[in-house]
Design a binder for these strands. Structure first.
Lengths: 340, 340
DNA sequence: GTGAAAGCGCTAACAA
DNA sequence: TTGTTAGCGCTTTCAC
């Protein structure tokens, strides 16, 4: 390994000067600088990042915390893939590295562990749920003075750094679209209520339905709950089909459930886009390849990841103030909701 | 920050003893150990990973190098998602952390850059292509004495660490299946030839066809090449349809192309599973949700990632010998290739 | 503008 | 079984 010392010797300067040159600090004679750079080049010197981290007491890494999801190959979900891509691009742009941290099932471990080893300067938390335990852990993180940011999850009452999407507006526009097309008995297949965006979507749904003259208290028979998996959508199909005389459209809280639902309904003889309208959320790749293609609420996951990384790293670098961002969604219309 | 020194003082031992306790090294009196552990607990001491890395001259990180793919949200592809999940699980199990490294378009950067900063002890390279430039860079990496492993790519003539799948056998079984079902004019939609697995699949295809009495030299009109994207499959549909009287089945080198192909053919009035049989590769999630569901060659990407990480880290930890592994594939039969 | 020198928190070789 | 000590390669303060 080539050290700073050797470069200093070859260039005939002190080690401190070599550091200055490489960090672009302080005033220095152009000639000295060139001499150092040349020496570094001939020796093929490159600063040791770990030693730098050690001395600076900064790792130069951004951590991304992934939730523990049993028996699920995590990345295979559109949401994680996109968010991670967005984070990765921005992190690189800003000269950081990206450390992936997988949470374990282990009830013991709390978020502070992530920082304890000092391997990351900040972290983005994905897939957080709004449970008492989670809230408490995040508060502890905050108290510990550790910079972090949540993506696609909002904690009402807290001022955590967040980058979310406007799921309420997205759901509203989807249901509104159905109502405008003439559907009136719109069922809602929601995901787990522990995620804030489930609640948001529910609100958007209720708002649109109310504007169409349906009071929330009369909507119970139109409300179904899955867990965002394709299987849960598939299972919901039976229940929906049971009430087929009271339902002419279904809005699902994500594409996976919407797809499972369409499959299940088809097996029962009910075709999406013919016998019933279906809309999903995420506008994942899968929405394009189903039959019929799935109308879906597009969520800018990539941008959300990118923004979260950017704002968080800026904060780490001294930018003052927290942030709570909410990006727009967009309804992408395909054939699954065409009027029969 | 709580340092080792404070723990040592509180426990009434030397700093070295604290280190020993935390590293489980050397013989020590149980009582001393307990005293140290207790002191550490009261002070809430946790070793500083960066300082450890610095002193050990080991980062404790495994790097995963992702290829530069313009305009593609990388993780959204089944292959990367699965491999990465497998790596992540194993890396965690072995006490390492996972550093994601995105290659840039930049022609300058070579693989050695990845190691220069000393931020990783070894790396897994995904999406490598067999081009002269790539080969040369990998050789330089090897010469530099940097431990690395390739996944899903084989470099004939080299002894790089590799974890591959038996794509030849997988393709053979797919084509064989078609032939046994009575299809005889099986076209092949391959991906970019710069990936070794494209060549492997081609071989499997040719072998099966030859056994059915078709000589390779007569197969040219049955051979199509895309670039593994859905769009390229979609575009291939037109060409395939042109020759529809000479084709009764298509084997595609991945699911995305197969799906694009089915869509394209459908628009031309040709239904997969009715007018033509289609088989894909990867057995991705998407294969389950298309209409008709897509028969596909399952590749154990998750296991490949996991194995690559394990063997590579073992090697870093002194296990002797390189490795070239090849895992089995399996044909998953669905309706896209049923006999009309 | 540049150099000298004091850390940073830990590991590991050696001594006791 | 435990303590002492010399680094690890760099940043940063202070002095010149």
């Amino acid at each position: 390994m080539v050290t700073r010392k050797e470069v200093a010797e070859l260039a005939g300067v002190s080690e401190a000067t070599v550091s200055r040159v490489f960090n672009g600090l302080g005033p220095m004679k152009e000639e000295t600088k060139q001499r150092v750079l040349e020496a570094a080049k001939t020796l093929n010197y490159h600063p040791n990042a770990i030693a730098q981290s050690f001395a600076r007491r900064r790792s130069g890494n951004l951590g991304v915390v992934l939730p523990y999801v049993p028996k699920v190959h995590l990345f295979s979900t559109y949401y994680f893939s996109e968010v991670l891509s967005g984070i990765g691009a921005k992190v690189k742009e800003m000269g950081y590295d990206l450390l992936l941290m997988f949470r374990s099932q282990d009830e013991e471990s709390d978020y502070n562990d992530v920082f304890r080893s000092q391997k990351v300067d900040a972290c983005i938390i994905l897939g957080a749920a709004d449970t008492p335990r989670e809230r408490q852990q995040l508060k502890k993180l905050e108290e510990g003075g550790h910079p972090f940011c949540l993506v696609n999850q909002h904690f009402t009452g807290e001022r955590f750094n967040e980058v979310d999407a406007d799921h309420t507006a997205g759901s509203y526009s989807a249901v509104k679209h159905l109502l405008e097309k003439g559907y009136s008995r719109v069922a809602f297949l929601n995901g787990s209520s522990q995620f804030s965006n489930s609640g948001d979507r529910r609100q958007g749904y209720i708002q649109a339905m109310r504007e169409a003259g349906m009071e929330p208290e009369n909507l119970a028979h139109l409300y179904y709950e899955g867990n965002y998996s394709r299987t849960s959508g598939y299972r919901a199909a039976a229940a929906v089909y049971e009430r087929r005389r009271e339902i002419d459209a279904v809005f699902a809280a994500n594409d996976r459930m919407a797809i499972g639902l369409m499959q299940g309904l088809r097996e029962l003889g009910w075709e999406a886009g013919r016998d019933v309208a279906v809309i999903g959320c995420d506008n994942s790749d899968a929405a394009r390849v189903t039959d019929p293609p799935l109308t879906s609420v597009a969520v800018p996951f990539y941008e959300m990841g990118s923004l979260a990384a950017q704002r968080l790293l800026e904060q780490v670098n001294g930018e003052p103030g927290g942030f709570q961002l909410k990006l727009d969604t967009e309804l992408i219309i395909r054939q699954s909701c065409r009027k029969a």
